[in-house]
Design a protein around this nucleic acid. Structure first.
Length: 456
RNA sequence: GAGGUUGUAGCUCAGCAGGUUAGAGCAUCGGAUUGUGGUUCCGAAGGCCGCGGGUUCGAACCCCGUCUUCCUCCCCA
Protein backbone atom coordinates (compact mmCIF):
# COMPACT_ATOMS: atom_id res chain seq x y z
CA UNK A 1 0.00 0.00 0.00
CA UNK A 2 1.80 3.11 -1.17
CA UNK A 3 1.23 6.47 0.41
CA UNK A 4 0.29 9.46 -1.64
CA UNK A 5 3.17 11.95 -1.43
CA UNK A 6 2.14 15.29 -0.02
CA UNK A 7 3.48 18.17 2.04
CA UNK A 8 1.62 20.31 4.60
CA UNK A 9 -0.23 23.35 3.41
CA UNK A 10 1.75 26.54 3.07
CA UNK A 11 5.04 24.66 2.52
CA UNK A 12 7.03 24.04 -0.64
CA UNK A 13 9.66 21.77 -2.13
CA UNK A 14 12.56 23.35 -3.96
CA UNK A 15 14.03 21.78 -7.07
CA UNK A 16 17.73 22.26 -7.86
CA UNK A 17 17.00 25.30 -10.00
CA UNK A 18 14.80 26.86 -7.30
CA UNK A 19 17.55 26.44 -4.72
CA UNK A 20 20.07 28.14 -6.99
CA UNK A 21 17.70 31.06 -7.45
CA UNK A 22 17.04 31.37 -3.73
CA UNK A 23 20.74 31.16 -2.99
CA UNK A 24 21.29 34.06 -5.33
CA UNK A 25 18.94 36.16 -3.21
CA UNK A 26 20.43 34.99 0.08
CA UNK A 27 23.98 35.63 -1.04
CA UNK A 28 23.09 39.08 -2.37
CA UNK A 29 21.60 39.96 1.00
CA UNK A 30 24.43 38.56 3.07
CA UNK A 31 27.02 40.22 0.84
CA UNK A 32 25.34 43.59 1.32
CA UNK A 33 25.11 43.19 5.09
CA UNK A 34 28.72 42.06 5.24
CA UNK A 35 29.87 45.11 3.36
CA UNK A 36 28.26 47.33 5.95
CA UNK A 37 29.94 45.46 8.78
CA UNK A 38 27.06 43.28 9.93
CA UNK A 39 28.00 39.88 11.32
CA UNK A 40 26.04 36.67 10.90
CA UNK A 41 24.39 34.79 13.76
CA UNK A 42 21.98 31.89 14.01
CA UNK A 43 19.44 30.92 16.64
CA UNK A 44 17.50 27.67 17.11
CA UNK A 45 14.42 26.89 15.04
CA UNK A 46 12.38 26.59 18.18
CA UNK A 47 12.42 28.55 21.39
CA UNK A 48 10.82 28.18 24.76
CA UNK A 49 7.15 29.10 24.48
CA UNK A 50 7.64 31.71 27.17
CA UNK A 51 10.19 33.50 24.98
CA UNK A 52 7.72 33.86 22.15
CA UNK A 53 4.25 34.02 23.63
CA UNK A 54 2.78 37.43 24.27
CA UNK A 55 5.31 39.26 22.11
CA UNK A 56 3.22 39.58 18.97
CA UNK A 57 -0.14 40.50 20.38
CA UNK A 58 -3.16 38.28 20.59
CA UNK A 59 -3.27 37.81 16.84
CA UNK A 60 0.36 36.78 16.70
CA UNK A 61 0.11 34.28 19.52
CA UNK A 62 -2.58 32.46 17.63
CA UNK A 63 -0.26 32.08 14.65
CA UNK A 64 2.65 30.58 16.56
CA UNK A 65 3.29 26.92 15.79
CA UNK A 66 3.57 25.11 19.09
CA UNK A 67 5.44 21.90 19.73
CA UNK A 68 3.47 19.28 21.57
CA UNK A 69 5.02 17.83 24.71
CA UNK A 70 5.92 14.18 24.40
CA UNK A 71 6.79 11.30 26.69
CA UNK A 72 6.15 11.76 30.40
CA UNK A 73 5.52 15.45 29.88
CA UNK A 74 2.07 14.79 28.48
CA UNK A 75 1.03 14.23 32.08
CA UNK A 76 1.38 17.96 32.62
CA UNK A 77 -1.77 18.55 30.59
CA UNK A 78 -4.06 20.81 32.61
CA UNK A 79 -7.37 19.01 32.30
CA UNK A 80 -9.03 21.41 34.71
CA UNK A 81 -8.29 24.24 32.34
CA UNK A 82 -9.82 22.23 29.53
CA UNK A 83 -12.90 21.47 31.62
CA UNK A 84 -13.32 25.16 32.48
CA UNK A 85 -12.89 26.05 28.80
CA UNK A 86 -9.67 27.99 29.39
CA UNK A 87 -8.16 26.91 26.10
CA UNK A 88 -5.06 29.14 26.12
CA UNK A 89 -4.04 27.78 29.50
CA UNK A 90 -4.76 24.23 28.40
CA UNK A 91 -2.63 24.78 25.30
CA UNK A 92 0.20 26.15 27.44
CA UNK A 93 0.15 23.06 29.60
CA UNK A 94 0.55 20.87 26.52
CA UNK A 95 3.50 22.68 25.05
CA UNK A 96 6.74 24.16 26.33
CA UNK A 97 8.37 24.91 23.00
CA UNK A 98 7.35 26.68 19.84
CA UNK A 99 8.75 27.30 16.35
CA UNK A 100 10.09 30.81 15.99
CA UNK A 101 7.64 33.28 14.52
CA UNK A 102 10.18 35.86 13.45
CA UNK A 103 13.86 36.59 13.97
CA UNK A 104 13.52 39.78 15.98
CA UNK A 105 12.26 38.41 19.28
CA UNK A 106 14.77 35.54 19.32
CA UNK A 107 17.42 38.15 18.54
CA UNK A 108 16.34 40.25 21.52
CA UNK A 109 16.64 37.14 23.67
CA UNK A 110 20.05 36.43 22.13
CA UNK A 111 21.37 39.92 22.85
CA UNK A 112 20.34 39.82 26.49
CA UNK A 113 21.65 36.31 26.97
CA UNK A 114 25.01 37.06 25.39
CA UNK A 115 25.34 40.72 26.37
CA UNK A 116 28.72 40.19 27.99
CA UNK A 117 30.14 38.47 24.91
CA UNK A 118 29.06 41.20 22.49
CA UNK A 119 30.45 44.62 21.90
CA UNK A 120 28.01 47.41 21.23
CA UNK A 121 26.78 48.77 18.93
CA UNK A 122 26.20 45.21 17.78
CA UNK A 123 25.31 44.76 14.12
CA UNK A 124 24.07 41.37 13.14
CA UNK A 125 22.32 39.74 10.23
CA UNK A 126 20.47 36.46 10.23
CA UNK A 127 18.99 34.43 7.39
CA UNK A 128 16.79 31.62 8.63
CA UNK A 129 13.29 30.24 8.15
CA UNK A 130 10.37 31.21 10.36
CA UNK A 131 6.98 29.57 10.73
CA UNK A 132 3.49 30.99 11.00
CA UNK A 133 0.22 29.10 11.28
CA UNK A 134 -1.29 31.60 8.89
CA UNK A 135 -3.75 30.88 6.14
CA UNK A 136 -1.67 30.52 2.96
CA UNK A 137 -2.34 33.05 0.21
CA UNK A 138 -0.53 34.69 -2.65
CA UNK A 139 2.97 35.41 -1.34
CA UNK A 140 2.14 33.97 2.07
CA UNK A 141 3.50 30.71 3.32
CA UNK A 142 3.58 28.85 6.61
CA UNK A 143 7.32 28.36 6.28
CA UNK A 144 9.39 31.16 4.82
CA UNK A 145 12.76 32.81 5.14
CA UNK A 146 13.43 36.07 6.81
CA UNK A 147 16.68 37.91 6.29
CA UNK A 148 17.08 40.32 9.16
CA UNK A 149 19.68 42.93 9.90
CA UNK A 150 19.65 44.89 13.14
CA UNK A 151 21.81 47.31 15.06
CA UNK A 152 21.45 47.39 18.83
CA UNK A 153 23.03 49.76 21.23
CA UNK A 154 23.12 52.90 19.14
CA UNK A 155 20.62 55.74 19.03
CA UNK A 156 22.18 57.34 16.00
CA UNK A 157 19.88 57.87 13.06
CA UNK A 158 22.83 57.04 10.86
CA UNK A 159 21.88 53.42 11.44
CA UNK A 160 18.51 54.03 9.81
CA UNK A 161 20.30 55.66 6.89
CA UNK A 162 22.66 52.73 6.60
CA UNK A 163 19.85 50.17 6.65
CA UNK A 164 18.06 52.03 3.89
CA UNK A 165 21.29 51.87 1.90
CA UNK A 166 21.44 48.11 2.45
CA UNK A 167 17.88 47.74 1.17
CA UNK A 168 18.72 49.84 -1.86
CA UNK A 169 21.85 47.87 -2.62
CA UNK A 170 20.22 44.48 -2.30
CA UNK A 171 17.19 45.26 -4.43
CA UNK A 172 19.22 47.15 -7.02
CA UNK A 173 21.72 44.31 -7.29
CA UNK A 174 18.86 41.89 -7.83
CA UNK A 175 17.77 44.16 -10.71
CA UNK A 176 14.29 44.93 -9.47
CA UNK A 177 12.95 47.46 -11.95
CA UNK A 178 11.88 49.82 -9.21
CA UNK A 179 10.87 49.98 -5.59
CA UNK A 180 9.66 52.51 -3.09
CA UNK A 181 11.12 52.69 0.39
CA UNK A 182 8.34 54.11 2.49
CA UNK A 183 9.28 55.90 5.67
CA UNK A 184 7.26 56.93 8.64
CA UNK A 185 7.89 57.55 12.29
CA UNK A 186 6.00 56.39 15.29
CA UNK A 187 6.43 59.82 16.85
CA UNK A 188 4.65 61.39 13.89
CA UNK A 189 1.78 58.97 14.41
CA UNK A 190 1.67 59.87 18.09
CA UNK A 191 1.69 63.50 17.09
CA UNK A 192 -1.22 63.03 14.71
CA UNK A 193 -3.21 61.31 17.42
CA UNK A 194 -2.31 64.14 19.79
CA UNK A 195 -3.44 66.99 17.56
CA UNK A 196 -6.62 65.08 16.79
CA UNK A 197 -7.34 64.47 20.45
CA UNK A 198 -7.26 60.74 19.92
CA UNK A 199 -4.14 59.75 21.82
CA UNK A 200 -5.89 56.98 23.72
CA UNK A 201 -6.94 55.37 20.45
CA UNK A 202 -3.61 55.61 18.67
CA UNK A 203 -3.67 51.99 17.56
CA UNK A 204 -7.16 52.07 16.06
CA UNK A 205 -6.37 55.34 14.36
CA UNK A 206 -3.15 54.15 12.77
CA UNK A 207 -4.48 50.73 11.79
CA UNK A 208 -7.31 52.47 9.95
CA UNK A 209 -4.92 54.94 8.33
CA UNK A 210 -2.71 52.07 7.23
CA UNK A 211 -5.50 50.82 5.00
CA UNK A 212 -5.87 54.06 3.06
CA UNK A 213 -4.32 52.78 -0.16
CA UNK A 214 -6.37 49.63 0.05
CA UNK A 215 -9.87 50.71 1.05
CA UNK A 216 -9.67 54.41 0.19
CA UNK A 217 -10.66 57.51 2.05
CA UNK A 218 -14.29 56.49 2.49
CA UNK A 219 -13.26 53.10 3.77
CA UNK A 220 -10.97 54.61 6.37
CA UNK A 221 -13.69 57.02 7.53
CA UNK A 222 -16.16 54.17 7.81
CA UNK A 223 -13.73 52.11 9.79
CA UNK A 224 -13.02 55.01 12.15
CA UNK A 225 -16.73 55.60 12.65
CA UNK A 226 -17.14 51.90 13.31
CA UNK A 227 -14.51 52.17 16.02
CA UNK A 228 -16.49 54.99 17.62
CA UNK A 229 -14.38 57.97 16.63
CA UNK A 230 -16.16 61.30 16.83
CA UNK A 231 -16.88 63.28 13.71
CA UNK A 232 -14.68 66.14 14.89
CA UNK A 233 -11.72 63.81 15.23
CA UNK A 234 -12.30 62.33 11.80
CA UNK A 235 -12.60 65.79 10.29
CA UNK A 236 -9.33 66.83 11.81
CA UNK A 237 -7.35 64.02 10.21
CA UNK A 238 -8.96 64.39 6.79
CA UNK A 239 -6.23 66.74 5.51
CA UNK A 240 -3.81 63.83 5.78
CA UNK A 241 -5.66 61.93 3.08
CA UNK A 242 -4.64 64.61 0.61
CA UNK A 243 -0.95 64.45 1.48
CA UNK A 244 0.95 64.61 -1.80
CA UNK A 245 4.13 65.83 -3.36
CA UNK A 246 7.81 65.41 -2.67
CA UNK A 247 9.38 64.39 0.61
CA UNK A 248 10.14 68.02 1.47
CA UNK A 249 6.64 69.17 0.57
CA UNK A 250 5.13 66.56 2.80
CA UNK A 251 7.47 67.51 5.63
CA UNK A 252 6.49 71.16 5.40
CA UNK A 253 2.80 70.30 5.25
CA UNK A 254 3.13 68.13 8.32
CA UNK A 255 5.16 70.75 10.15
CA UNK A 256 2.12 72.98 10.00
CA UNK A 257 -0.26 70.15 10.82
CA UNK A 258 1.76 68.94 13.82
CA UNK A 259 3.07 72.31 15.02
CA UNK A 260 1.28 71.94 18.36
CA UNK A 261 2.66 68.49 19.06
CA UNK A 262 6.14 68.33 20.46
CA UNK A 263 6.51 64.64 19.85
CA UNK A 264 5.15 64.94 16.34
CA UNK A 265 7.70 67.63 15.50
CA UNK A 266 10.46 65.44 16.89
CA UNK A 267 9.38 62.67 14.56
CA UNK A 268 9.41 65.02 11.59
CA UNK A 269 12.86 66.19 12.52
CA UNK A 270 14.07 62.58 12.48
CA UNK A 271 12.49 61.90 9.11
CA UNK A 272 13.94 65.05 7.74
CA UNK A 273 17.42 64.17 9.04
CA UNK A 274 17.31 60.74 7.44
CA UNK A 275 16.09 62.13 4.15
CA UNK A 276 18.78 64.82 4.10
CA UNK A 277 21.52 62.21 4.21
CA UNK A 278 20.62 61.00 0.75
CA UNK A 279 20.97 64.40 -0.85
CA UNK A 280 24.70 64.09 -1.46
CA UNK A 281 24.82 60.31 -1.26
CA UNK A 282 21.87 59.22 -3.36
CA UNK A 283 20.29 55.80 -3.52
CA UNK A 284 20.95 53.62 -6.55
CA UNK A 285 17.38 52.84 -7.52
CA UNK A 286 15.14 53.13 -4.47
CA UNK A 287 12.67 55.96 -4.16
CA UNK A 288 12.18 57.39 -0.71
CA UNK A 289 8.65 58.30 0.20
CA UNK A 290 7.18 59.77 3.34
CA UNK A 291 4.00 57.88 4.09
CA UNK A 292 2.14 58.77 7.25
CA UNK A 293 -0.27 55.88 6.73
CA UNK A 294 2.50 53.38 7.35
CA UNK A 295 1.92 51.73 10.71
CA UNK A 296 2.96 48.09 10.58
CA UNK A 297 4.59 46.46 13.54
CA UNK A 298 3.41 49.28 15.72
CA UNK A 299 3.52 47.05 18.78
CA UNK A 300 7.21 47.58 19.25
CA UNK A 301 8.38 50.28 16.90
CA UNK A 302 9.04 53.57 18.64
CA UNK A 303 10.85 55.61 15.99
CA UNK A 304 11.39 55.02 12.31
CA UNK A 305 9.04 52.70 10.44
CA UNK A 306 10.21 51.33 7.09
CA UNK A 307 8.37 49.36 4.46
CA UNK A 308 9.39 48.53 0.92
CA UNK A 309 7.07 47.94 -2.01
CA UNK A 310 8.18 46.64 -5.38
CA UNK A 311 6.92 48.36 -8.52
CA UNK A 312 5.19 46.55 -11.38
CA UNK A 313 3.77 43.72 -9.28
CA UNK A 314 0.90 43.23 -6.89
CA UNK A 315 2.51 41.95 -3.74
CA UNK A 316 2.66 42.77 -0.06
CA UNK A 317 5.73 44.49 1.27
CA UNK A 318 9.05 42.79 0.52
CA UNK A 319 10.95 44.38 3.34
CA UNK A 320 9.98 46.04 6.56
CA UNK A 321 11.55 47.36 9.69
CA UNK A 322 11.96 50.15 12.15
CA UNK A 323 13.33 51.29 15.45
CA UNK A 324 12.34 49.86 18.79
CA UNK A 325 13.76 51.67 21.77
CA UNK A 326 13.42 48.98 24.32
CA UNK A 327 12.98 45.58 22.78
CA UNK A 328 15.48 43.86 25.04
CA UNK A 329 13.61 45.29 28.03
CA UNK A 330 11.25 42.33 27.76
CA UNK A 331 14.19 40.11 28.66
CA UNK A 332 15.49 42.35 31.41
CA UNK A 333 18.03 44.55 29.67
CA UNK A 334 16.72 48.09 29.77
CA UNK A 335 17.57 51.09 27.66
CA UNK A 336 19.15 49.35 24.70
CA UNK A 337 17.88 50.83 21.46
CA UNK A 338 17.64 48.79 18.29
CA UNK A 339 16.80 49.37 14.68
CA UNK A 340 16.43 46.73 12.04
CA UNK A 341 15.02 45.55 8.76
CA UNK A 342 13.72 42.26 7.50
CA UNK A 343 13.74 41.09 3.89
CA UNK A 344 11.03 38.68 2.77
CA UNK A 345 13.17 36.45 0.59
CA UNK A 346 10.25 34.38 -0.64
CA UNK A 347 8.30 37.39 -1.82
CA UNK A 348 11.37 38.78 -3.55
CA UNK A 349 11.70 35.36 -5.16
CA UNK A 350 8.10 35.42 -6.39
CA UNK A 351 8.55 38.91 -7.81
CA UNK A 352 11.77 37.99 -9.59
CA UNK A 353 10.07 34.92 -10.99
CA UNK A 354 7.10 36.83 -12.40
CA UNK A 355 9.29 39.58 -13.81
CA UNK A 356 11.78 37.01 -15.13
CA UNK A 357 14.71 38.65 -13.41
CA UNK A 358 16.72 35.53 -12.70
CA UNK A 359 19.73 35.06 -14.96
CA UNK A 360 19.33 32.29 -17.50
CA UNK A 361 22.67 30.64 -16.96
CA UNK A 362 22.11 30.10 -13.26
CA UNK A 363 21.86 26.39 -13.77
CA UNK A 364 25.22 25.41 -15.15
CA UNK A 365 25.94 21.80 -15.98
CA UNK A 366 29.29 20.03 -15.71
CA UNK A 367 32.13 21.44 -17.77
CA UNK A 368 33.07 17.92 -18.84
CA UNK A 369 31.11 14.73 -18.73
CA UNK A 370 33.19 11.59 -19.22
CA UNK A 371 31.25 8.92 -21.05
CA UNK A 372 31.47 5.47 -19.59
CA UNK A 373 32.55 2.72 -21.99
CA UNK A 374 33.90 0.16 -19.59
CA UNK A 375 35.33 -0.24 -16.15
CA UNK A 376 38.94 0.19 -17.33
CA UNK A 377 38.40 3.38 -19.31
CA UNK A 378 36.14 4.83 -16.63
CA UNK A 379 38.94 4.42 -14.10
CA UNK A 380 41.20 6.50 -16.30
CA UNK A 381 38.41 9.04 -16.75
CA UNK A 382 37.98 9.30 -12.99
CA UNK A 383 41.64 10.26 -12.68
CA UNK A 384 41.27 12.89 -15.43
CA UNK A 385 38.09 14.14 -13.78
CA UNK A 386 40.06 14.96 -10.67
CA UNK A 387 42.57 16.94 -12.71
CA UNK A 388 39.69 18.89 -14.21
CA UNK A 389 38.32 19.55 -10.73
CA UNK A 390 41.74 20.80 -9.66
CA UNK A 391 41.33 23.49 -12.31
CA UNK A 392 38.17 24.59 -10.51
CA UNK A 393 35.89 23.08 -13.13
CA UNK A 394 33.01 20.69 -12.71
CA UNK A 395 33.64 17.15 -13.95
CA UNK A 396 31.43 14.13 -13.86
CA UNK A 397 31.97 10.51 -14.88
CA UNK A 398 28.84 8.74 -16.06
CA UNK A 399 28.36 6.06 -13.41
CA UNK A 400 27.38 3.07 -15.48
CA UNK A 401 28.13 1.62 -18.86
CA UNK A 402 24.90 2.10 -20.76
CA UNK A 403 24.04 2.96 -24.31
CA UNK A 404 25.77 6.09 -25.56
CA UNK A 405 22.45 7.48 -26.62
CA UNK A 406 21.32 7.47 -23.04
CA UNK A 407 24.56 8.93 -21.74
CA UNK A 408 24.46 11.76 -24.27
CA UNK A 409 20.85 12.45 -23.51
CA UNK A 410 21.84 12.79 -19.87
CA UNK A 411 24.68 15.13 -20.84
CA UNK A 412 22.28 17.18 -22.88
CA UNK A 413 19.65 17.48 -20.17
CA UNK A 414 22.16 18.28 -17.51
CA UNK A 415 23.65 21.00 -19.67
CA UNK A 416 27.17 19.56 -19.95
CA UNK A 417 29.45 21.83 -21.96
CA UNK A 418 31.79 19.11 -23.18
CA UNK A 419 31.59 15.34 -23.43
CA UNK A 420 34.71 13.22 -23.48
CA UNK A 421 34.86 9.96 -25.44
CA UNK A 422 37.46 7.50 -24.24
CA UNK A 423 36.54 3.95 -25.13
CA UNK A 424 38.47 0.93 -26.21
CA UNK A 425 39.07 2.37 -29.68
CA UNK A 426 40.50 5.65 -28.34
CA UNK A 427 42.59 3.84 -25.78
CA UNK A 428 44.24 1.72 -28.47
CA UNK A 429 44.93 4.78 -30.59
CA UNK A 430 46.07 6.77 -27.58
CA UNK A 431 43.57 9.59 -28.14
CA UNK A 432 40.47 11.15 -26.63
CA UNK A 433 37.57 12.78 -28.47
CA UNK A 434 36.03 15.90 -27.01
CA UNK A 435 32.61 16.90 -28.21
CA UNK A 436 31.21 20.38 -27.69
CA UNK A 437 27.56 19.80 -26.90
CA UNK A 438 26.18 23.08 -28.13
CA UNK A 439 27.86 23.12 -31.54
CA UNK A 440 28.24 19.37 -31.91
CA UNK A 441 31.86 19.83 -33.01
CA UNK A 442 34.37 17.15 -32.10
CA UNK A 443 38.11 17.46 -31.55
CA UNK A 444 40.71 14.74 -31.20
CA UNK A 445 43.60 15.10 -28.80
CA UNK A 446 46.42 12.82 -27.68
CA UNK A 447 45.27 11.01 -24.54
CA UNK A 448 48.25 12.05 -22.44
CA UNK A 449 48.01 15.77 -23.20
CA UNK A 450 44.38 16.58 -23.89
CA UNK A 451 43.87 18.56 -20.70
CA UNK A 452 46.48 21.18 -21.60
CA UNK A 453 45.06 21.74 -25.08
CA UNK A 454 41.42 21.69 -24.01
CA UNK A 455 40.00 25.18 -23.90
CA UNK A 456 36.89 24.36 -21.88
C1' G B 1 -10.46 32.76 13.13
C1' A B 2 -14.94 34.31 9.16
C1' G B 3 -16.78 33.88 4.03
C1' G B 4 -16.21 32.02 -0.93
C1' U B 5 -13.63 28.59 -4.34
C1' U B 6 -11.02 24.18 -6.09
C1' G B 7 -9.74 18.83 -6.24
C1' U B 8 -9.80 13.47 -12.49
C1' A B 9 -2.48 10.12 -14.75
C1' G B 10 3.98 13.06 -12.51
C1' C B 11 2.13 18.15 -14.92
C1' U B 12 -1.92 21.00 -17.69
C1' C B 13 -6.73 19.74 -18.41
C1' A B 14 -11.36 17.02 -21.23
C1' G B 15 -15.36 13.90 -19.44
C1' C B 16 -22.50 16.04 -22.79
C1' A B 17 -28.55 15.86 -18.10
C1' G B 18 -26.06 10.24 -12.94
C1' G B 19 -25.39 4.51 -17.36
C1' U B 20 -21.02 -0.51 -18.80
C1' U B 21 -13.49 -1.40 -19.94
C1' A B 22 -12.48 7.29 -17.42
C1' G B 23 -9.61 10.23 -22.20
C1' A B 24 -5.91 13.92 -24.57
C1' G B 25 -1.37 16.76 -24.70
C1' C B 26 3.26 17.22 -22.26
C1' A B 27 6.66 14.51 -19.14
C1' U B 28 8.57 9.26 -18.03
C1' C B 29 10.30 4.40 -19.78
C1' G B 30 11.36 1.04 -24.04
C1' G B 31 12.23 0.47 -29.36
C1' A B 32 13.38 2.30 -34.55
C1' U B 33 19.55 3.59 -34.17
C1' U B 34 24.78 -2.97 -30.87
C1' G B 35 29.96 4.10 -30.29
C1' U B 36 27.00 9.95 -30.80
C1' G B 37 22.21 14.14 -27.65
C1' G B 38 18.59 18.22 -28.47
C1' U B 39 13.95 17.06 -34.04
C1' U B 40 10.86 12.64 -35.87
C1' C B 41 8.14 7.79 -35.81
C1' C B 42 6.25 3.36 -33.05
C1' G B 43 5.03 1.22 -28.40
C1' A B 44 4.48 0.68 -23.01
C1' A B 45 3.56 2.03 -18.26
C1' G B 46 0.95 5.22 -15.33
C1' G B 47 -5.97 6.53 -12.06
C1' C B 48 -9.70 3.50 -4.90
C1' C B 49 -11.88 10.50 -10.33
C1' G B 50 -8.83 14.17 -2.64
C1' C B 51 -10.81 11.19 1.69
C1' G B 52 -15.23 9.30 4.55
C1' G B 53 -20.37 8.65 4.63
C1' G B 54 -25.28 9.00 2.16
C1' U B 55 -29.11 8.90 -2.04
C1' U B 56 -29.73 5.37 -6.29
C1' C B 57 -30.64 -0.75 -9.76
C1' G B 58 -26.21 2.19 -10.92
C1' A B 59 -22.06 7.97 -8.67
C1' A B 60 -16.00 11.14 -11.33
C1' C B 61 -20.96 13.55 -11.86
C1' C B 62 -26.29 14.49 -6.83
C1' C B 63 -26.35 15.40 -1.02
C1' C B 64 -23.58 15.82 3.85
C1' G B 65 -18.96 15.92 6.41
C1' U B 66 -13.69 16.39 6.19
C1' C B 67 -9.02 17.70 4.17
C1' U B 68 -6.62 20.44 0.29
C1' U B 69 -6.06 24.61 -3.43
C1' C B 70 -6.71 29.54 -4.68
C1' C B 71 -9.21 34.23 -3.34
C1' U B 72 -11.41 38.13 0.10
C1' C B 73 -11.39 39.72 5.28
C1' C B 74 -8.15 39.61 9.65
C1' C B 75 -3.04 39.93 10.11
C1' C B 76 1.62 39.92 8.06
C1' A B 77 7.12 38.94 5.00
Amino acid sequence: MSQKPAIPKGTRDFLPEDVLKRNLIFSTISTAFNRFGFQPIETPSFELSSTLMGKYGEEGDRLIFRILNSGEKVRKADLDALASDNLPRFANSLSEKALRYDLTVPFARFVVQHQHELSFPFKRYQIQPVWRADRPQHGRYQEFYQCDGDVVGSDSLRNEVELIQVIDQVLSTLKLPGFTIKLNNRKVLSGIAEVCNASEHLIHLTVALDKLDKIGEVGVINELMGKGFEASVIDSIKPLFQLKGSFEERISFLSAFLSKSEIGMKGLEELSYIHSKFRDNPLVKGQLELDVTLARGLNYYTGAIIEVKAHEVVMGSICGGGRYDDLTGLFGLKGLSGVGISFGADRIYDIMETLELFPRDLRSGPDVLFLNFSETEADQCAIWANSVRDLGKVAEVYPSQTKLQKQLKYANEKGAKWVLFYGEEERQKGIVILKHMESGEQHTYPADAWLSSWEG
